[in-house]
C-alpha cells in the first residue's frame, strides 16, 4: 500500500516539483498517473522507489517510511516493487533469460529457485520462445515485455511503470497495457505513468491527474475528466 500525505519536493536547484500531494493507493489497484511534461510524475515515482526523499510530508510504501528510510533498507523496499522504464534498461550482452534471471540472482535467490521461476514469468509475458535471444534482436514491445518479466520476477507487491509505452507504436502500447492489466488481475498493484490519452481511455481505470506539482483530478473512468479540468 502507498500513502502520500501532503508531500512537497524541492530539488537542489530550487525547482518545486511537488506542492502538497496527497494520494492513497490500495493493494490490488490499477492506476494511471497522467499529466503534462514537468508536472512531477517521475518525481512521485522516484519518491516511491526511495531514489528521492520528500522535502516535507509523509511517504509510506509497503510499510516503509521513505522520509526516514535507512540506506541499508533501500534494497528491501525495492524488492517489494517492480520498476519499468520507458527505455527498457535491459543488459544488451545478456540473453532474455539472463536479463530476467539476473534480477533474481542479485537479490540472493538460489540457482534452483531461478530455474523454476524464470520460465514461468517468461511464459506469462509470452516470451518463452525467445529466451535465448539478445535484447537487440527483439522488437521494442518484446523488449518492454522482458523488462516487465524482470520487474515481476521477484514477486513484487506493486509494479511501477514510468511511461512504459513511450517508445512504442499504438498497437504495441496496447499490448503492454493489456499485459499490465493481466498482471494486475493476478493480484499485483499497478501504477502506470503515461501521456497517451487514447490508451487511458480504452481502460476504465482510476486516473490520477497531476499538474504543476498538484493533483488536479482523481477519478475512476477515464482520461477525459483530466482534460475537462485543463480546459
Amino acid at each position: 500500500m502507498v500513502r502520500l500525505v501532503d508531500v512537497y519536493k524541492a530539488y537542489g536547484s530550487g525547482t518545486r516539483a511537488l506542492k502538497g500531494v496527497t494520494l492513497r493507493i490500495d493493494d490490488g489497484e490499477f492506476i494511471f498517473l497522467v499529466g503534462p511534461s514537468g508536472s512531477g510524475k517521475s518525481t512521485i515515482i522516484k519518491l516511491l522507489t526511495g531514489e528521492l526523499r520528500p522535502t516535507e510530508g509523509r511517504v509510506q510504501v509497503n510499510g516503509y517510511n521513505i522520509g526516514a528510510l535507512r540506506q541499508r533498507d533501500v534494497p528491501y523496499l525495492r524488492r517489494t516493487l517492480g520498476v519499468i522504464f520507458q527505455d527498457f534498461r535491459l543488459i544488451e550482452k545478456k540473453s532474455v533469460y539472463e536479463n530476467v534471471a539476473f534480477a533474481m540472482r542479485v537479490v540472493g535467490a538460489s540457482p534452483r529457485e531461478i530455474k523454476l521461476r524464470v520460465p514461468y514469468v517468461l511464459d506469462l509475458v509470452g516470451l518463452s520462445h525467445k529466451a535465448r535471444r539478445r535484447p537487440l534482436e527483439l522488437s521494442g514491445g518484446e523488449q518492454q515485455r522482458v523488462a516487465i518479466a524482470r520487474a515481476l520476477i521477484n514477486n513484487p507487491k506493486m509494479i511501477i511503470a514510468d511511461e512504459p509505452t513511450g517508445n512504442l507504436d499504438p498497437a504495441r502500447s496496447l499490448e503492454i497495457m493489456m499485459l499490465l492489466e493481466r498482471i494486475n488481475a493476478l493480484g499485483t498493484t499497478v501504477l502506470a505513468v503515461t501521456h497517451e490519452k487514447e490508451l487511458v481511455n480504452r481502460f476504465a481505470k482510476r486516473v490520477v491527474a497531476i499538474d504543476g506539482g498538484r493533483i488536479i483530478s482523481d477519478k475512476t473512468g477515464g482520461y477525459y475528466q483530466y482534460e475537462a479540468i485543463r480546459n
Partner: peptide, 9 residues
C-alpha cells in the same frame, strides 16, 4: 539495474 531491482550495496 542491480540497484533498482533491490541488490544490496
Amino acid at each position: 539495474i542491480m540497484r533498482v531491482v533491490g541488490a544490496t550495496k
